[in-house]
Computed example of a mutant assay.
Amino acid sequence: MDRPEDHKLRRSGRCPHCNAKLESKILASTRNLLEQFERSPNMTVSFFFNGHKGDTKDNGVKNPTGELRPTWMFSNFAQIPVSVQNPHNGVVLPFASAEAAFQAGKYLSRQDIISDLQVAYKGGECRKIARRFKSSNVSGWIKHGLNVKWMRVVTYCKFLQCENLRSILMQTGERRLVEDSPFDSFWGIGKDRKGTNMLGVILMEIRAQFLQDACTNALGEVHPETSAVIQGSAVRKGFVAAYTDFKKTRVKCLTGELQ
């Protein structure tokens, strides 16, 4: 049975054994994906939460529309540790996945809920926890776009804190990234494939900034926990703008300035 300290190490990304397995899985999936690109240079890169495991048999296989099957590491449900700084009190919060960090954005002043999310490893668990405390959601989460603003912050942190993950994102080049969910027409493209694909849009926005900095050799060392120390010009500006935008909007919602 796992000890409590083992859970803390895993979710904070400080477990050497887990990190080694994760890096190996990312590199294997990267090789698989690059082989697909060689065969089909202009293919859309699609991902979906039920393909979050790197060893899934669907990984890298074409679906009936000719797009790539879900690419597990781009999914929020991928169990890739991410740490975000809580704008409510400045505390750095480690999570086992981007989904857990995203759901925590609704309850940044509730340490009890955050603690539950910090020990949740599966995306489904995170959503269940969030639904259980739905009445405690921060005001304006959807109405004033806090959901999109926080997703952008979490996604920045996820890719800034893992070099191999950042590398494969950049290697997708200018290909379209699609959250291929038949159940979600906002974060994904929905059943009719005409959805907003907001998660894919955010990924492509951040990718463009990484590529811009890579071209100018501007992307420097990244702080392993907070992502606060970023030398890259485009990425630094993008991350700071996203974090500040969320923080200011959240305050306005909490104070009633935004109804």
Rank of each mutant, 00 (worst) to 15 (best):
K57G: 04
G13I: 09
N59K: 02
R39Q: 14
R69Y: 01
K53L: 01
L27G: 01
P16V: 10
M73I: 12
M73Q: 13
A20V: 12
M73D: 09
I26M: 13
E38Y: 08
E67P: 00
S29L: 10
Q36H: 07
W72Q: 00
S12F: 01
S29G: 12
N89T: 05
R31T: 12
F37R: 04
T30I: 02
V84N: 05
N89P: 04
F74L: 15
R39H: 12
P16N: 13
R31L: 15
R11N: 12
T71H: 14
T56H: 07
L27R: 10
L68V: 03
G66N: 08
F48K: 14
R14C: 06
C15L: 08
Q79P: 10
K53Q: 11
T44M: 00
G51A: 12
R14I: 09
G51I: 02
K8G: 01
K25H: 04
T30G: 05
H7K: 06
L22K: 13
P81T: 05
S83W: 03
N63R: 13
L34Y: 03
S75Q: 08
N42E: 15
N19I: 05
R69D: 00
E67C: 01
G51D: 08
W72N: 00
I26G: 09
K53F: 00
F48V: 14
W72Y: 01
N32M: 03
L22T: 11
Q79S: 15
F47M: 05
T56A: 15
V61D: 01
P16G: 09
V92C: 14
L33F: 06
A78C: 14
V45L: 09
V91S: 09
R10T: 02
E67S: 02
K53M: 03
V61N: 07
F47Y: 15
P70K: 02
L33H: 06
N50W: 00
L33G: 03
F47I: 02
P87W: 13
R11M: 08
K8I: 07
T56K: 11
N50P: 03
V45E: 07
S29T: 08
A28L: 08
K25S: 07
K57S: 15
T71N: 11
L22E: 05
S24Q: 13
L22P: 10
V61T: 08
I26H: 03
F74R: 10
M43R: 15
G66K: 08
S40A: 04
H52K: 15
P81R: 07
E38N: 13
A20I: 05
K25L: 00
